[in-house]
Design a protein around this nucleic acid. Structure first.
Lengths: 196, 196
DNA sequence: TAAAAAACTGACTGAGCACTCAGTCTAATA
DNA sequence: TATTAGACTGAGTGCTCAGTCAGTTTTTTA
């Protein structure tokens, strides 16, 4: 099971940097030292490699998010939202390859007629939104966050902001570091409970 | 100049639906009735077609945005931000093909070593952010919007939210219509001037 | 209307690609 | 040690694709 892992690792790297279509099996072979035949001995086809990577991605990222969620803190919900944003940005940088794969067209194209792929993507995105929803619910409980807007919807909006930042960073469009402080401040204003 | 236009139109359609790599010249030829040779008579290569489309996209979208910006209204800056969001979402749906092209990987990849492409993308994104910055500046003038956060940065954040919505819609991830009301509300809270 | 220029054609080329297969190597098992 | 099953090999296959070119048709110009 040595070569199989090497193939997966190299494929993750190549798919994230060059995209699915632009990654040739020959390249994968050269990079890993495995013959092209070996690749197809371990995987049904190119799509099979991608699906395996997506599964691994899910099994890698989701527990990380779960572990984070279980670290309860004594802070207000609002402070926890800030922490969650920070955590998301951190993990997106730390696991850049995996997030780059999620920000490509191919997985969504594949999801259209591959239920397995669709399920994985759904699970991942639910988890992403959950990480913001939980603190918002807490904040609505402790009074630090308004409850005029349903928590799930606010969570989606916060997620959309944070995910855009990740995309800006990846596409070299804007310097996200220079925007971090204002992003946090904007989210606070957005969520703040002003009735108390 | 009949066939040339037909080629550009079909290429815009195909690039936006199937992506750049997945669009074959043979398909383009079949769709337009032009021989493959004709395509390469009018354009240097496939990349040349894409660059022409990107230029046309810029020349199509930017004036539309300029025209919108020149329609002064007597409203507050804050109301104008809401209008701008609405306008952006409208035009992104109306010119779905063009926005789909902007949401692909290829243009950014190309921009890395093609200055012309980089300039076009920069012009487009500047215009996108401007459309939110101007109302915010107005709002800071008329007191409807806080000036704790620099207008450009707030504009970037609003843009990031709205652009995410467009992406959600395109990737079939979430129902954006169901989120519109809350998006506007969130932006209002975010920008609101509370010191007066 | 003759000549020149521009638009257009489609069979062809060569490169690149995902995937196959007949066979070899390796390591565990009996 | 002999057998066997799993891991691995890489030349080969057939296909797709971007791009070419020698020639034809259409349009413009003189």
């Amino acid at each position: 099971m040595k070569k199989k892992d090497a193939i997966l690792q190299a494929a993750t790297y190549l798919f994230s940097r060059k995209g699915y279509k632009d990654t040739a099996m020959g390249e994968l072979s050269k990079m890993t030292g495995a013959a092209e035949g070996t690749i197809f001995y371990h995987f049904k086809n190119k799509q099979g490699i991608f699906l395996t990577i997506l599964e691994n991605l899910k099994d890698d990222i989701l527990p990380e998010f779960e572990r984070y969620r279980s670290t309860e803190s004594a802070k207000t919900g609002m402070d926890m939202v800030e922490e969650a944003i920070s955590f998301y940005l951190y993990i997106a940088q730390n696991k850049e390859d995996l997030f780059a794969i999620l920000h490509q067209r191919y997985p969504y194209e594949l999801a259209e007629n591959n239920p397995e792929c669709r399920d994985i993507l759904e699970a991942i995105y639910n988890c992403f939104v959950d990480i913001f929803e939980q603190p918002i619910l807490n904040g609505q409980g402790d009074g630090s966050i308004n409850d005029d807007i349903p928590a799930r919807k606010s969570a989606l909006i916060v997620f959309s902001m944070v995910d855009s930042m990740v995309r800006f960073r990846m596409n070299n469009l804007y310097d996200v570091g220079a925007l971090y402080k204002e992003l946090i401040e904007s989210c606070r204003r957005m969520l703040e409970n002003r009735s108390r």
